[in-house]
Amino acid sequence: MTKFFQLVIAGIEIGSIYALVALAIVIIYASTGLKNLAQGEMAMFSAFIAYQFHAWGLGIWLALILAILTTFVLGMGVQQVVLKPVQDSSLLTVVIVTLGLFLGLNSVAGFIWGYMMLAFPAIFPEGAVEIGSVGISYAAIGVFAVLLACAGALFALFQFTKIGLAMRAVAYNKETSMLVGVQVNRVIMVGFGLAASLGAVGGIFAAPKLFLDPFMMLTVLIYALASAAFGGLDSPLGAVIAGLFIGVIENLAGGYIGFIGSDLKIVVPLVIILGTLLFRPQGLLGRKYIPRV
């Protein structure tokens, strides 16, 4: 049983990372209808920024808060410079542009920080809470707590603030929002910054565990996309639940199902994507889309 619980805990830890990046994807999708394939690379980049602040001598918490704020600004900048011009173009154009962004960010990070992995300083103290023979590391507890805090803050933002209300309005209907005086462009810009920051949180808290290199978030992105699809592309709550679920399930599948083994682990989220799309395309908690002429 030790193995089982240990796998579940490891699953929750990595699942929290998937969930954070999935949240970022969902926020952008909900407010703009586009899926940012560069979300993972942006998160990776933020982790490098935090690393750099720390390397310059700042304390780790200060470094990561500064990095998240920097990312917020960078996210808005990227939206204004790169995505705004193609915002109303075809879906394909937008996908291609985010792929271009993906290639570019990856290459720049490699250029600046190199391709060798770097040790990211521990954010939480070392050690673990022992329950019987099962050890729960402080890092695992910390990452999970951060996820809950982010989800809670997001909920509060959407429910209780004006900008949150505006974002929900834009997500619901862009034209109508514009008519009632919402500054749609500004809302989208803030939404992008917010999503980038959430992704940054995911990247930064993933870095001590995964070790930092330009390809750190490549596969995490796939898991995050699977989480977003599974939970419902427009449901933040769905993204959180799905992220955790996928983290746990892939670990248990890898640990117990011989055929899957650890070889085909990556296939687990892909099968989840396929299954969801086939049987419930809107995801667990997403809204159903009804095409209109």
Binding site: I96, V97, L99, G100, L101, F102, L103, G104, L105, N106, S107, V108, G110, F111
Partner: peptide, 8 residues
């Protein structure tokens, strides 16, 4: 990679 990304 960046040059290619920018071209796209």
């Amino acid at each position: 990679g960046m040059v290619f990304g920018i071209i796209i």
